[in-house]
Simulated scan of single mutants.
Amino acid sequence: MTNPIIERLQAQLEAGKDSPLLRFGLGSALFNEKHYEAAAEHLRECVKQMPDHSAAWKLLGRSEMALGNDAAAAEAFERGLAVAQEKGDVQVEREIGVFLNKLARKRG
């Protein structure tokens, strides 16, 4: 069974209503369904359209991490960390720190 939220967001995108928040919502819904490649695709577009979206950078990093793309994950987390620090987004900053530590432990 397909997720109705994903279907609705994809329909909006196909209707030409592209926006960073639509891409973030679609990427987030796809991530939650474990469709990491598709999630990463939409999240990459989200941060391209809105580079200061720290939560999108964090979720992009998590998507890349789930795909085993550790270098891309680290890059997304680092970009997200810089944005979060610049915006004073302490919660996202903490969460990204946790994921960066996981990556560091994985790398040995």
Score class of each variant (00 low, 15 high):
residue 13 L to W: 07
residue 13 L to E: 08
residue 8 R to G: 02
residue 48 K to R: 11
residue 10 Q to D: 06
residue 33 E to V: 02
residue 6 I to Y: 06
residue 56 A to F: 12
residue 55 A to W: 14
residue 69 N to K: 07
residue 31 F to R: 15
residue 42 H to G: 04
residue 66 A to L: 03
residue 26 L to F: 09
residue 24 F to S: 12
residue 72 A to Y: 03
residue 73 A to P: 15
residue 51 P to Y: 08
residue 60 L to G: 04
residue 9 L to P: 08
residue 36 Y to K: 00
residue 62 R to D: 09
residue 59 L to N: 13
residue 6 I to E: 08
residue 22 L to C: 11
residue 30 L to F: 01
residue 43 L to G: 09
residue 37 E to Y: 00
residue 36 Y to A: 00
residue 10 Q to N: 05
residue 37 E to N: 00
residue 34 K to W: 00
residue 47 V to A: 05
residue 55 A to R: 14
residue 65 M to P: 03
residue 75 E to Q: 14
residue 64 E to P: 05
residue 18 D to E: 12
residue 39 A to L: 03
residue 22 L to R: 15
residue 20 P to S: 11
residue 47 V to K: 07
residue 65 M to C: 09
residue 63 S to P: 03
residue 71 A to L: 02
residue 53 H to Y: 15
residue 49 Q to N: 08
residue 30 L to P: 06
residue 55 A to M: 15
residue 37 E to L: 02
residue 60 L to F: 04
residue 36 Y to M: 00
residue 45 E to C: 07
residue 21 L to Y: 10
residue 37 E to S: 00
residue 32 N to H: 05
residue 48 K to C: 02
residue 40 A to E: 01
residue 34 K to H: 01
residue 23 R to N: 13
residue 52 D to I: 13
residue 71 A to Q: 04
residue 16 G to L: 11
residue 21 L to V: 13
residue 58 K to F: 12
residue 58 K to T: 02
residue 63 S to K: 03
residue 22 L to F: 14
residue 76 A to I: 06
residue 31 F to Y: 13
residue 58 K to E: 11
residue 11 A to G: 04
residue 7 E to H: 04
residue 55 A to Q: 15
residue 67 L to K: 01
residue 48 K to Q: 09
residue 22 L to A: 14
residue 61 G to E: 06
residue 62 R to Q: 12
residue 57 W to T: 14
residue 44 R to I: 03
residue 28 S to D: 13
residue 66 A to C: 04
residue 15 A to E: 10
residue 35 H to E: 00
residue 12 Q to S: 09
residue 27 G to S: 08
residue 11 A to R: 07
residue 18 D to I: 06
residue 57 W to I: 15
residue 55 A to H: 13
residue 9 L to C: 10
residue 33 E to H: 02
residue 33 E to P: 02
residue 34 K to P: 00
residue 32 N to V: 01
residue 40 A to Y: 01
residue 64 E to G: 05
residue 71 A to T: 03
residue 7 E to S: 07
residue 25 G to Y: 10
residue 7 E to K: 04
residue 69 N to T: 00
residue 64 E to F: 03
residue 42 H to C: 05
residue 76 A to H: 08
residue 56 A to V: 07
residue 11 A to V: 01
residue 21 L to T: 14
residue 38 A to C: 01
residue 54 S to W: 11
residue 66 A to S: 11
residue 37 E to I: 00
residue 58 K to R: 14
residue 40 A to F: 01
residue 25 G to N: 11
residue 64 E to A: 05
residue 56 A to M: 10
residue 65 M to A: 12
residue 15 A to H: 09
residue 8 R to S: 06
residue 66 A to Y: 06
residue 69 N to M: 03
residue 15 A to F: 08
residue 27 G to H: 05
residue 57 W to Q: 15
residue 59 L to T: 07
residue 6 I to H: 08
residue 44 R to N: 07
residue 18 D to A: 14
residue 62 R to S: 09
residue 49 Q to F: 07
residue 56 A to N: 12
residue 55 A to D: 15
residue 46 C to N: 11
residue 22 L to I: 12
